[in-house]
Design a protein around this nucleic acid. Structure first.
Lengths: 198, 198
DNA sequence: CGCACGTGAGACATCTTTGTCTCATTCGGG
DNA sequence: CCCGAATGAGACAAAGATGTCTCACGTGCG
């Protein structure tokens, strides 16, 4: 029943621990509970008091990632304006959370049989809906399925996050790189005035 | 059963073990040595006799992946013809090895500090050179760096491999999905005859 | 002041995986 | 027919991670 009042020493606020864990696990996905605890500046015992085990921690991180994705989707207002602009807004909104997303994306790959959090299904659907909307409006090509485009967006986000983390590309180009590649591809657009050859 | 004549019982040919391990680890990257051995149809003892440890196994898989990438690069003749066609050939040549590549790609992310096999650097360079060539020839846009395009190609290959493995997209669309997205992006090309609006 | 609560430190047993070893078996070849 | 080589089965210890527990400390609050 306790909420906020006597909140002075119970500290170690869960949110700070989660974000520290996200930052660490993003870089080293095999970090131990002890490393996670040290990264958050708390003891392993305290970490265990907040998250029953490693599974609980990962599931909490998953919930955090889902919440941040949903917040990004809401902030980007993906059903307003052109699908192109909506996609730009979406990537820009997700950018700060890309490292965590990259961690969760690969983490999900090794769950093999187990069903994944249903929260992802809802997010997948909202992103796929954005691509579908773009296809319906004629902005997007229709020979690539929304499911694949959604998957590709995740893949590009993860790739970009890693490339930035390892210094292979500049952080400031993050959104531009993803959005431009996803929207226009690598092929150079033919200039309307002077066209070269088909 | 042995294609080699000078040693009939040395069997358990290393290649079969490697490919079994690749197939298993692609689906479950945390599989134990015992699971890998069973998947290859041999005992853990024999597996250990061929690969000193898990590290040695992963390094052997890395070498296999590198060899297959180099073979794909050679088969695609990436320095002949248009960069666009070369990219199509390259993706088509890599397609069969995409699951292994996806495994190695994520495996490399958690090496944190340790230097990665220098073989990858050579492959990265050859792929980046293809993108550079396309930029020089005017086929590709120049506002996306070859380093990012190379990274994006890896990401799309991995995403597609997973999406196919989990049944989210059709296997037969593999090459088309990747090449088309990478080359043209999702934006619908404007028709030369009737243009809508910019 | 003294109590209560959350924390850090660390001991501890358990579990999993790994790496090494031994031994019996099988199979082909001399 | 017998020998050598490779394998499978399994025991074994070591290492690492996890989960649980106890205890002492310090700080806020009554």
């Amino acid at each position: 029943m306790s909420h906020v009042r006597y909140r002075r020493l119970m500290a170690v606020d869960r949110d700070h621990v989660l974000r520290s864990a996200a930052a660490l696990l993003t870089r080293k996905s095999t970090a131990t509970m002890d490393e996670v605890a040290r990264a958050a500046g708390i003891s392993r015992a305290t970490l265990h008091r907040q998250f029953a085990g490693r599974d609980a921690l990962v599931r909490a991180l998953e919930a955090l990632g889902i919440a941040e994705c949903e917040a990004a989707l809401a902030a980007a207002r993906t059903d307003e304006g052109s699908a192109t602009d909506a996609l730009r807004r979406l990537v820009a909104a997700i950018e700060p959370h890309a490292p965590l997303l990259a961690f969760l994306y690969t983490e999900n790959q090794l769950f093999e049989g187990e069903e994944q959090n249903e929260g992802w299904a809802a997010i997948d659907e909202r992103i796929a809906a954005l691509f579908r909307r773009g296809q319906s409006s004629g902005e997007f090509r229709i020979d690539l399925t929304p499911a694949w485009l959604t998957e590709a967006l995740y893949g590009l986000l993860a790739s970009a996050a890693w490339a930035v983390a390892e210094g292979r590309v500049a952080p400031k180009d993050f959104t531009h790189m993803i959005v431009e590649l996803l929207l226009g591809g690598v092929r150079r657009p033919e200039e309307p005035a002077s066209r070269k050859e088909s």
